[in-house]
Computed example of a mutant assay.
Amino acid sequence: MNCCELMDASVYLTKEVGNPFEAYPNKIDYFTKSELAEIMGGAIYKVKQKSKSVTIDELIADGWNRLIGNNWEWINPLIELVPVEDGE
């Protein structure tokens, strides 16, 4: 599903969509957060619920940010996620 192309010493992620039997399948370069969580076992993005044994200060020190309620997200500090508006 995912293809990585080396561009100027950085990784550019794309995924193929549409008919896989076409000569030139369409590739798109945007992902949902749940798709990002599946790439390389969560090396780019993770979401989890805070367990009782972990303090909020420990989560923040490890780079986790609070989403909603008890849900926390981690974004790899070596990358920048750019929001994509609907319809693009």
Results as ranks from 00 to 15, higher is better:
Lys15Gln: 14
Ala61Tyr: 03
Lys50Gln: 15
Glu85Trp: 01
Ile56Asn: 11
Thr32Ala: 08
Val54Met: 12
Thr32Phe: 06
Val82Gly: 00
Thr32Ser: 15
Met7His: 14
Val47Asn: 08
Glu85Ser: 09
Leu59Ala: 05
Pro25Thr: 09
Glu38Trp: 01
Glu80His: 06
Arg66Tyr: 00
Trp64Asn: 07
Ile79Phe: 05
Ala9Ile: 05
Ile79Glu: 02
Ile39Arg: 03
Ile68Asn: 13
Tyr24Ser: 12
Cys4Pro: 00
Leu81Asn: 03
Ile56Val: 15
Asn19Ser: 10
Ala37Met: 12
Asp86Val: 04
Leu59Tyr: 13
Glu16Val: 11
Asn65Thr: 12
Ile44Ser: 01
Glu35Val: 05
Ile79His: 02
Asn71Trp: 11
Lys48Trp: 03
Asp62Ser: 14
Gly42Ala: 07
Cys4Lys: 11
Ser53Asp: 14
Trp72Ala: 02
Asn76Leu: 00
Tyr24Ile: 13
Glu16Met: 13
Ile28Asn: 06
Asp57Glu: 14
Ala37His: 05
Ala23Val: 11
Asn76Trp: 03
Gly69Trp: 03
Asp62Arg: 14
Cys3Pro: 00
Ile79Pro: 00
Trp72Met: 03
Glu35Tyr: 08
Tyr45Asn: 07
Glu35Ala: 07
Leu67Ile: 05
Met40Lys: 14
Pro25Arg: 07
Tyr12Arg: 12
Lys33Asp: 06
Gly41Cys: 09
Trp72Phe: 13
Asp57Gly: 06
Ile28Leu: 10
Met1Asn: 10
Thr14Ile: 07
Asp86Ala: 10
Phe21Ser: 13
Glu22Asn: 14
Ser34Glu: 15
Thr32Met: 09
Thr14Asn: 05
Pro83Gln: 02
Gly41Tyr: 07
Gly41Asn: 15
Val47Ser: 12
Glu85Phe: 03
Asp57Phe: 04
Trp72Asp: 04
Phe31Thr: 07
Leu13Trp: 09
Ser10Phe: 01
Ser10Lys: 13
Gly87Asn: 01
Ala37Pro: 04
Ser10His: 12
Lys46Leu: 13
Asn71Val: 08
Lys27Gln: 15
Asn65Val: 10
Asn26Pro: 00
Glu5Leu: 12
Tyr30Thr: 08
Asn65Ser: 12
Gly63Asp: 06
Ile79Asn: 04
Ala9Asp: 15
Asp86Cys: 01
Phe31Met: 06
Val84Pro: 01
Pro83Cys: 02
Ser51Ile: 06
Lys48Pro: 02
Gly41Glu: 14
Ser10Tyr: 05
Val11Ala: 10
Tyr45Met: 07
Ser53Ile: 11
Asp62Thr: 04
Tyr12Ser: 11
Asn70Ile: 04
